[in-house]
Amino acid sequence: MAGKIVINIERCKGCGLCVAVCPKGGIVISKQSNKSGYFPAEKNNSACTGCASCAIICPEAAIEVYREQDILNKPHKETTPDLVKGKK
């Protein structure tokens, strides 16, 4: 497991876009509704590579993505804010 996501289930509206774009089928729609009555997304397996596709398409900015340290040394495309903080 090289990556991990944390979904803010109260912020999620269950739109399903993350489920559709996750390359590893790592997310499903939960059977449990959140306080607002939406059925939020939830992690489905541990195949997450930390690619952040789910977070990038999430309209609610409700997904945080973590990645294993060593993968970080490899150069990454300019995908996520934290990574590019250094660059101008």
Partner: peptide, 13 residues
């Protein structure tokens, strides 16, 4: 150790 690589930007409330 997992490092956070993606989160909500500050300019978004």
């Amino acid at each position: 150790m997992m490092q956070k690589v993606f989160s909500k930007p500050q300019a978004l409330k």
